[in-house]
Design a protein around this nucleic acid. Structure first.
Lengths: 452, 452
DNA sequence: ATGTTGGCTAGAAGCCGACAA
DNA sequence: TTGTCGGCTTCTAGCCAACAT
């Protein structure tokens, strides 16, 4: 009686065997992490090039601390507003207490003088963008009051149960089975899945309340189930946007955190040494590590202007995506003193739908999709002589990087590029970046050598 | 039925009216904070001078992150191993999730050239040290398995109940009352206090389990009750030394945190501008903000040597203190490269009791009390001419700062000092500090101008 | 003096279909 | 199709003294 041989409860949560002690690291399931992070999050893969925005990084910290940046922070005049980096390493994590997902990235600044224009880097970065890993079967439901009350279980949406759960044996009366699912920490949760009621519906009963209380879920939070390639059931949670849990950190002052970010980036930039950042996709909409190709396309294929119409992706309630229409109402720097010529949230925008009260009124150029015809500019003058471009291009769906290459540098065949990418004519990408930093060229969002 | 007019439960936790929104700050009860922090914690009061050790600060962060300092951290050659600071502000906090207590301190470095020896500062700092606020009535109990199980309530130690709780009406059968206590966040907890059983004992029944589950307490954690000056009951918790909850922070990399600390301190030191630190007394034994007088006494009144015997205070299980005896086995810098001539944990020690496995083997000079006679040194040479000192002083209890003054600077009368402290002969305290930094004088822990 | 246990009981947790929306 | 509710059952939370240390 003192130590029961096995638990009497039908449902129990037992942590799996792999511990995180002794240097052994838990490996987070990437599909589950992605599902918890949301459909808009797209981490650049390790080995590709990215653009890092210290301003955005600082903003994420400010948001998670619920405290604005103070004036007390020293200036780091040698830290540019963006750093071209090689992304060495990406590891996925989940907070053991809250299941909050985040990613750890190791970045190494690429020194300006050795980064000749490397089409291969761009293509690899671009390829990674387009490689939409096939979303595994997946459903996400926002919990209702009934789902989270102690009065009952969880009402499973019909489509979801049929698509994700193993099929029930409908010869049983009522049809029921035991579901076993693992969370981000490989903790096993067991549920009784039953099809009953009048009208019939899928329900999770025994075991459900343990999960709700164990994860401290409330109505408004979301739960999601996915089935991995081995037909195993995985489940994750996504909390509603409550106020940040840690208003103050109790470890480091907000000032020290901001200083830490800037000083770490400045030190890394000065020495071209690697540094580590944490990206928390759900803490705030601050994607401050941008795939090089995404940044590149935004800067060099979109001719932006006041009044321009655009679309932008947002996440829907049930973890889908939808586009909202908006208009550019202003182009200006967010912090012209500290972050000169940064494109971080340099677009002021208005939204078509008045219900969009919570949508941000400042976005970055790589977040939007202009609805006017993309306006391809030419590479700098010494490249533009051979084939004068007619302004404006038709708005077709093939306006990706490959076409951009062919249009702006049509004399470069794919064969040559792929065989010997290092031998390309020396258009330095960093030269471009530097031009972005150059105030004399930055009156418009775009260096204006189109009709010079 | 849908919305009950008032809660049926006899015990309920309701947060008090003062919110932390709208700039209104919760003010933490200092006695309760102190009780939760433990008997050894002694925060210097605002307005006094302190010595700040960035190395110790860094250590606290390392401990709370469970990660050692990396080699990746840049050096801050202009940041000395200790900073003399004016403590502008001390605010007490408690983590709303875990009730972990911590203090926020605003420090302003005192520039070397304007800090002439200020006896007043020292005396004020010393006075604050000696002002042991009268400990309010107080008890602390480590929770047993029975205390935390769902099977029953809380067994109150007899002495504690009689000392702290309001007296019961023993004419009742059984004697019982309702106890109302507030925690650090001013949340009200209600308990039924009853005296019953065979043999009779004090118990907390109804309401207790709500507290245990609300605070997520487990056997081994401690609960403490105190009675403030208004006879109000306050209660706090102290968790057992489990593994740190936040192994990684999900906000800032460990490296960035360390850089943040160092860069913030370096920036403040360079500009003599204020900076903010968090001191978490229970995260790790890293008291990195030391009252000036305490530091001063340790450096200038203790002649330390290898083999020297000493006593040191530790906290006992039930929030008391006791002294352990030890021997100095080595005097060496913890990190001679990064932190030259720091006194941070520069003593290697052994402990008399073999049960002392968990006691630290490196301590700082101000943590110990030598059991040999204190060995007063003289102020630097230009001060020492008038009255040559005989080495060694009797070990009396009056070896405090006032006596130290009279002995080392007997020509300075109290009257003169108090009336015009600014007019004192120019013994710069910072000169001393700088000497501590000077390698040529730092062969022993103590500048050796005694018998020069 | 106080930690643990078995006995007992009140009340919450939790399973069910009914009934809307 | 699915959220909420009343009815009912089961089981745990929780009060008590006995007993042990």
């Amino acid at each position: 009686m003192k130590t029961p041989a096995n638990g009497a409860g039908a449902a129990s949560a037992t942590s799996a065997s792999n511990s995180c002690e002794g240097g052994e690291k838990k490996s987070i399931n990437p599909e589950l992490w992605q599902a918890c992070a949301g459909p808009l999050v797209n981490l650049p893969p390790a080995g590709t090039h990215v653009v890092y925005f210290p301003q955005g990084h600082s903003e994420q910290v400010a948001a998670s601390m619920k405290k604005d940046v103070d004036a007390q922070i020293p200036n780091y005049p040698n830290l540019p507003s963006k750093l071209l980096c090689l992304l060495h390493n990406v590891t996925l994590h989940a907070d053991p207490e809250t299941d909050e997902v985040y990613a750890q990235m190791t970045l190494q600044p690429v020194p300006s003088f050795c980064m000749q224009f490397d089409k291969d880097s761009l293509l690899r970065s671009d390829l990674a963008l387009k490689t939409n890993k096939p979303q595994p079967d997946f459903f996400c439901k926002t919990l209702t009051a009934s789902d989270t009350s102690t009065h009952g279980g969880f009402s499973v949406p019909r489509r979801a149960a049929e698509k994700i759960f193993p099929p029930l044996d409908f010869s049983m009366q009522p049809p029921a089975q035991e579901l076993i699912a693992r969370d981000l920490h490989d903790t096993v949760w067991t549920f009784r899945h039953i099809y009953r009621g009048q009208p019939k519906r899928h329900l999770l009963t025994t075991g459900w309340s343990l999960f709700v209380s164990g994860k401290r879920l409330f109505a408004g939070d979301s739960v999601l189930f996915i089935r991995d390639e081995k037909q195993q059931l995985l489940l994750g949670i996504r909390r509603a946007n409550r106020q940040p849990t840690n208003l103050s950190s109790s470890v480091l002052s907000s000032d020290s955190m901001h200083i830490g970010i800037l000083a770490a980036a400045a030190h890394a930039a000065a020495n071209n040494s690697p540094f580590t950042v944490f990206y928390n996709p759900r803490a705030s909409p601050s994607e401050f590590v941008i795939p090089l190709a995404k940044y590149y396309k935004a800067v060099y294929s979109n001719q932006l202007s006041l009044g321009m119409r655009f679309r932008m992706m947002f996440e829907t309630e049930e973890s889908g995506t939808r586009r909202y229409m908006g208009t550019i109402t202003g182009i200006s720097e967010l912090d012209p003193v500290r972050w000169k010529n940064s494109q971080w949230r340099n677009l002021q925008v208005g939204w078509d739908e008045s219900t969009a009260g919570e949508r941000r009124n400042r976005v970055s150029i790589w977040e939007i999709e202009p609805v006017t015809a993309p306006f391809f500019i030419c590479p700098p003058t010494y490249f533009r002589s051979k084939r004068p471009r007619q302004p404006g291009m038709p708005d077709d769906e093939s306006s990706d990087l490959d076409n951009l290459f062919r249009r702006t540098m049509p004399w470069i065949g794919d064969d040559i590029c792929m065989k010997d990418p290092q031998a390309l004519p020396g258009l330095s990408l960093v030269q471009w970046m530097n031009m972005q930093q150059n105030p004399s060229l930055a009156n418009t969002i775009q260096p204006n050598y189109m009709h010079s």
